[in-house]
């Protein structure tokens, strides 16, 4: 195996594109090294992106927040401005693993690992985040919900690397929230999760919303009918029931010892309602 640690994105793309055999990007390694240890993958080349300066920064721009692919989740939690603008995204990122894992893991690794239960992904989808992808043919911008295709499989092509995540600018009177269900409070993988991001107009009426669910399908879902169910409402009980019904309709979960189909579908509704209420409060609604 070869270990490479390029200094620039261009260098990384060249290495990824030209590498012979199985090549993997290394961010925090909290998925990659576990899979290597388990013998599930045997890389021929590893391209460590953590020495690339631009990938280590969180930048506030006119377009919102640009989070470099090598920024650890612990660093996101330490960024007060980001926490204030996107509390749901940061709380989701900070739920990943332990303090030790937080010191290494990234939201881009969480995304590219393509687990349907990845915590930060529904929150990023609800936020309307975009992945900035660099490859041999230049840059392309991909909506976060289009990166994972099925468990462990992404839409990234040979030679491509996610350089950063773009979060939109924080709108006035908006709020986001993420909740997951796990049997243990720490160090556990979501059985079901839900994220809601919404914006309020006059009189607390929701003018815009995005709702996403995790671990209830082969990939995290953007549930447009669920958003539609609460847009135009003040999140009254009727709107919440419609939100829950739309979420239930979108669920297509697996049945396993961690949760039956019935249980996951039920909990998805409960979490979506609760996340919507938190997001509504964060947006300044009463």
């Amino acid at each position: 195996m070869l270990y490479e640690s390029p200094q620039t994105t261009t260098e990384a793309v060249t290495l990824l594109a030209k590498a012979k055999g199985k090549v993997h990007v290394l961010a925090g390694g909290s998925d990659l090294l576990v899979r290597m240890k388990g013998g599930y993958i045997e890389p021929d080349v590893i391209v460590d992106i953590k020495r690339i300066k631009s990938m280590n920064a969180v930048k506030k721009t006119a377009d919102g927040y640009l989070i470099g692919a090598a920024v650890s989740c612990a660093q996101l939690g330490d960024n007060a401005a980001l926490v204030k603008a996107w509390p749901g995204v940061v709380e989701a990122a900070n739920l990943i693993g332990s303090d030790q894992i937080q010191g290494r893991c990234t939201i881009v690794g969480n995304l590219c690992n393509a687990s349907p239960a990845a915590d930060s992904v529904p929150a990023m989808i609800a936020a309307g985040a975009t992945a900035i992808v660099q490859g041999p043919r230049g840059e392309r911008q991909v909506a976060v919900e289009k990166i994972a295709k099925s468990p462990g499989v992404t839409s990234l092509k040979k030679g491509e690397v996610v350089e950063a995540i773009q979060l939109p600018p924080k709108q006035k009177k908006s709020g986001d929230a993420y909740l997951r269900f796990t049997p243990r409070t720490e160090m556990d993988i979501a059985v079901v999760s839900a994220a809601v991001n919404l914006t309020l107009g006059p009189k607390g009426v929701i003018t815009d919303a995005r709702v996403a669910l995790g671990a209830v399908a082969p990939k995290a879902l953007l549930v447009k009918p669920a958003a539609k169910a609460i847009i135009g409402s003040t999140l009254d009980d009727d709107a919440l029931d419609k939100l829950a019904a739309a979420c239930a309709a979108a669920c297509d979960p697996i049945d396993d010892k961690r949760g039956t189909v019935h249980f996951r579908t039920k909990v998805a509704q409960v979490l979506a309602k609760r996340a919507a209420k938190i997001a509504y409060q964060r947006a300044g609604g009463k």
Binding site: Y3, S5, L26, G28, G29, S30, L33, V34, K37, G38, I46, D48, K50, S72, A74, G97, S98, D99, Q100, I101, G103, R104, M187
Partner: peptide, 28 residues
């Protein structure tokens, strides 16, 4: 050896990490 137990905890440039999930080469 998989990041779950913390017995291998060290500080890497000050950050608390599991050394079983870091490559030796990364310490350069």
């Amino acid at each position: 050896g998989t990041g779950d137990c913390g017995a291998c905890s060290i500080r890497l440039d000050g950050a608390l990490v599991c050394s079983c999930l870091v490559l030796g080469a990364e310490a350069e």
